[in-house]
Amino acid sequence: MIAGDADTVGWWLPTWTLWKREMVRFVRQRSRVIGAFGTPLVFWLIMGYGVGKSLRLPGAAESTHYLEYSFPGAIASILMFTAIFSTISIIDDRKEGFMQGVLAAPVPRTSIALGKVLGATTLAVGQAILFLFFGRAAGIHLHVVTFIASFAVMVIVAFSVTSLGFLIAWQMESTQGFHAVMNLFLMPMLILSGAFFPTSGAAKGMYYLMMLNPMTYGVTLLRAAVYSGGTVPTEGWGTALVVSVAFAAIMFWSLIRTVTRESTQAMH
């Protein structure tokens, strides 16, 4: 602990005010809802009804509709897209001086990370819950237990992907760079997570890639939560829970380290 850190304003007030800013900004920029919520919804409906029952997924019951199979994957997409759209603003914040103002305040660095990550997590989980209702309307059977279990899992997954998004955005010079990383890294992470096709049918190399992908465990966990006792098999949720919590912890820890270190160095 550095001697000078004793005199800060505490961590909760700055965390809370940064969280609140995320909420207000989201409400005032309605177009963001379209990107983060509308896109996965439309894709899910198109793919779900388009593929229908033409694909029989290994391990799944014969009657499994693709709409139903890809439902947890669509939730994962919402969590991931919201995380991306929320954290991309960090790049502009750093350029436009807003973040400089925060960094020059007597605020613990942990609060800066936590306020943003919790804000983005709230938005992601809020939209994912809304999506659960869409699923219900589309005929997917959901218990009350499902909602509670899903909520817990969505918080874990959202927290880890927003931390990851923050970590990437913090080191980016431009939003264009962020888009490149998104296409090259975050999208494959989503596609190779079992969200759209199961790991068991993938080619060997791809299978190992999928098993190394932390999002795979998040999707497994989402699937287990959404279909507690449903038609799609959900083995291995114990492992998935351990990996997902560990992933969230590691991401946030890396983020704190980066923000603390970076704030003492030059920014351009």
């Binding site: 550095i2 001697a3 000078g4 850190d5 004793a6 005199d7 800060t8 304003v9 020059a104 305040a105 007597p106």
Partner: peptide, 8 residues
């Protein structure tokens, strides 16, 4: 050494 005091 005393960043927080300075910041406030």
């Amino acid at each position: 050494r005393e960043r927080s005091q300075v910041r406030s």
